[in-house]
């Protein structure tokens, strides 16, 4: 069944030009951004900028074990490209009326949902694989300590990144199932992550200060995005969370479960038009 579902998705997307272009942009951007830290630090070096007395190029951002935390944090933000690809893939089903035709042809709504979930897992796996390869390449190249314990310390950031990507993609999957229009879904997705939720969070903070902190933490974009804390503060001697708080993991899994449930209910209980 899973082979059939994956084959079905593959047949659909392998000939879609916009999908191929975005896939190329995505892979190039992901690799480039993850490698670009060293170029940025070298540029800062040339500008004679220092961090508390250290030359930027001396900062161990690509060294084990910090590298996993650093690149996982950065890589998460590039998941917006596969998110847009997923919206395109789902939107075309509504815009061409093919979802309806597939159901008529005998595909069950749950199978359709499974096909998109497999696509999400594929994206998250690709994302994770690229981050792992870049991390290993850079880490082995730039670390003084290449012991097994150094390499695999902080390795837990990788599976967390995987679930963060899954969370973001499930968010857009659910959104597109309700909106049904590619362009509008992309717009709402970007606006929600960049403007709407920060405003909601800001308003809650102004109204209730830290009393509603838990609710602000549970808002979906924040719950998905802030599982991994900003890691670079450690290089200016600020305290950073170099572990994953359980409460944040719970928030992330809560939304993963909620989006799966909402998508299932939407597909199985409402009319497919």
């Amino acid at each position: 069944m899973n082979t059939k579902i994956l084959q079905l998705e593959w047949l659909k997307i392998k000939h879609k030009r916009s999908f191929q272009i975005l896939l190329l942009i995505y892979l190039i951007s992901l690799v480039t951004v993850l490698f670009s830290g060293q170029w940025l630090l070298a540029a800062l070096d040339r500008l004679s900028i220092d961090f508390e007395g250290y030359r930027p190029s001396m900062l161990p951002i690509y060294e084990f074990p910090d590298i996993w935390h650093n690149i996982s944090y950065v890589a998460y933000y590039l998941a917006f490209i596969p998110a847009i690809m997923l919206i395109i893939s789902m939107g075309m089903e509504y815009e061409n009326d093919t979802l309806k035709q597939h159901i008529i042809d005998g595909l069950k709504p749950t199978e359709f949902l499974m096909s998109k979930l497999w696509l999400i897992i594929c994206f998250a796996t690709i994302h994770l694989s690229v981050v792992f390869l870049v991390g290993m390449t850079m880490g082995l190249n730039q670390s003084y300590d290449r012991s097994i314990s150094a390499i695999f310390k902080y390795f837990e950031f990788l599976p967390v990144l995987f679930f963060q990507v899954v969370g973001m993609l499930l968010f857009v999957c659910t959104l597109t199932l309700f909106i049904k229009k590619t362009g509008l879904s992309i717009l709402i997705f970007i606006l929600y992550f960049i403007i709407i939720e920060p405003i909601i969070s800001g308003v809650l903070f102004v109204l209730a200060g830290d009393n509603l902190a838990i609710i602000r933490q549970m808002l979906p974009a924040r719950a998905i995005s802030e599982v991994i804390s900003f890691p670079f503060g450690r290089y200016v001697f600020r305290e950073v969370l170099d572990y994953i708080p359980i409460s944040r993991l719970i928030s992330l899994f809560f939304w993963i479960f909620t989006f799966c449930t909402l998508s299932y209910i939407k597909l199985s209980r409402s009319d497919i038009k």
């Binding site: 079905l8 000939h15 879609k16 075309m92 061409n96 009326d97 005998g106």
Partner: peptide
């Protein structure tokens, strides 16, 4: 069945569209 007119992926050929349908069926 055909409901509300033909519904296929416009960027695929007739045969490629039928290949998807064949997989479902």
């Amino acid at each position: 069945a055909i409901l509300d007119g033909p519904s296929f992926y416009d960027f695929l050929s007739g045969r490629q569209n039928l290949a998807i349908c064949a997989l479902i069926k």
